[in-house]
């Protein structure tokens, strides 16, 4: 465990000292501040809009930063050849991969907490302290980010950062609409052709193998002030951990067979 923690700390430190990452946080915070300021000007709906738009911005910016950094997590080590001096040390490849993932998870935690604190603070100023549902929303956003990172890790284990980024983004979009995809049937009943049936089946198949990310978006509950049950949060957490576990095992298998040339 010690080498994993060492690599995680180094990954976290690298991100914190990275100017691009700092600029990303600053940009995300600036966007959040601007949108919240505009929302607060809307008549009678300011709190609802602030919650709605604020959570959307936190979720989207965190997911995009997670995709960008996730797909280059291992690639950068290979490109800059830093992996050449780490892997010959007495560590397992899985420990290296786990350390990189954990380091990025710590970084994303800081990002979500920073942005969440800004939203929380502004809501507090406008409407008093937000309820438990807001904390639940932040936790679920963070879980979604961790799942997206695991997906990015899988794709980056065998493809280029660009392709991995596209595939991860595609998985994120599909994941948000899994419930729609599962019930999709193209065309009216009397107009269905073998082609529309095949496409519908393919979409449903993709939905079955895509992580269901829709459960991590609880904005409507937050907007109307309805906290979710502890059972739901626990179930979403366990499901998320299972997705992360599956993604990590696939990545570890691919990574263990890889040649570092």
């Amino acid at each position: 465990m010690k080498p994993t923690w060492t690599i995680a700390q180094n990954t976290f430190r690298e991100a914190v000292r990275n100017r691009i990452f700092a600029a990303s946080i600053f940009f995300a915070l600036a966007m959040l501040g601007l949108v919240l300021a505009v929302s607060s000007a809307s008549l009678h709906e300011e709190v609802r809009l602030m919650k709605d738009v604020g959570l959307f911005l936190i979720s989207i910016s965190a997911v995009f930063i997670a995709i960008f950094t996730g797909v280059t997590l291992v690639y950068k080590e290979l490109e800059r050849k830093t992996i050449y001096t780490v892997m010959p040390k007495p560590i397992y490849r899985t420990q290296f991969l786990a350390g990189k993932y954990l380091g990025l998870a710590m970084t994303m935690f800081v990002l979500v907490v920073t942005m969440g604190t800004v939203l929380f603070g502004m809501l507090h100023l406008v409407d008093g302290a937000p309820g438990l549902e807001m904390i639940q929303a932040f936790w679920l956003i963070y879980l979604e980010v961790l799942i997206v990172m695991a997906v990015a890790l899988v794709f980056s284990s065998f493809s280029t950062p660009f392709l991995s980024g596209l595939l991860t983004l595609g998985t994120f979009i599909c994941g948000r609409f899994v419930d729609v995809m599962l019930t999709l049937r193209l065309g009216e009943a009397d107009e269905r052709t073998p082609v529309t049936e095949a496409i519908s089946s393919l979409v449903r198949l993709v939905a079955h193998v895509t992580p269901d990310l829709s459960i991590y978006n609880i904005t409507p509950h937050v907007v109307y002030g309805h906290p979710l049950s502890q059972d739901f949060i626990l179930q979403a957490t366990l499901t998320g951990l299972a997705y992360i576990g599956i993604g990590f095992v696939i990545s570890a298998v691919l990574f263990s067979r890889r040649d570092f040339v």
């Binding site: 180094n10 430190r13 690298e14 000292r17 990275n18 800059r80 050849k81 830093t82 050449y84 001096t85 010959p88």
Partner: peptide
Amino acid sequence: RLGFLPEHPYFYEHL
């Protein structure tokens, strides 16, 4: 018990 220096080494530049 092994030490290794690769060819054209690149290291963690933030350190």
